[in-house]
Nucleic acid binder design. Sequence first.
DNA 1: ATGGCATCTAACAGATGA
Length: 259
Amino acid sequence: MKIATWNVNSIRSRSEHLTQWLRDNPVTVLCLQETKVIDADFPREPFEELGYHLYFSGQKSYNGVAIFSQSPLEDVTIGFSPILGSVYGEWDEQKRLISGVLDGIRIVNVYVPNGAEVGSDKYDYKLQWLEILGKYLQYLLDKNPHLCICGDFNIAPEARDIYKKTKDTDIMASPTERAALSALLELGLTDAFRKFTGDEGHYTWWDYRRGGFQNQRGWRIDHHYLTPELYNRCSDCIIDPIPRGWEKPSDHTPVILTL
DNA sequence: ATGGCATCTAACAGATGA
């Protein structure tokens, strides 16, 4: 089974890239972020033609997540409140979370808030969102010990995941963000990419500005985290930088996990 | 500190992203 994650920065702008990539990389499951489209306008046809079952949760202009799967998913859940209760309804206004089960594995697709800048209201929102995600994951893990959470975390876990030396005030690298991510992982989740690749220089996002990709100024902020048995079973986790070099690309590139 | 680049809505500029 291959589970890929890709922040496409608008699925309507990236439809051709996605179908081309899926033809070359017919992954079992593809988790997408930043679809930026309401559900009624989601471009289903090109992906259903490739044989995928589509599950999505979107909103106008911003955010939005989707899962494409070669086989139907079970128990598809959108947002926090079906799990945590309607008291968390306001945290579902931004469409950032969708999950489903395939072959007994709970797959969770997240688009973690960006956070704008350290200390801002959006930064606080990001930290609170991660804390609620922890409660959500705890509930799912209590029901099913086999879980893969992947997506755009908007956090680079370590210095080796960033092309430059950062300061504590840099968004996506601040100690508080990293601590919030570590707290999640203490639920029993491990970074699949680092099972295979220990060195620096492996990135999943490059800024559009000032030739970030051409100059290899990147960050590794898109991840797969696995529960122990899946981590042991995992035989590969690679970044595919090729789509980032295409014309009018997303600023992120896909990451593919093999189980 | 700022803007750089891309996307959105819907304007011919502003918000957001990371």
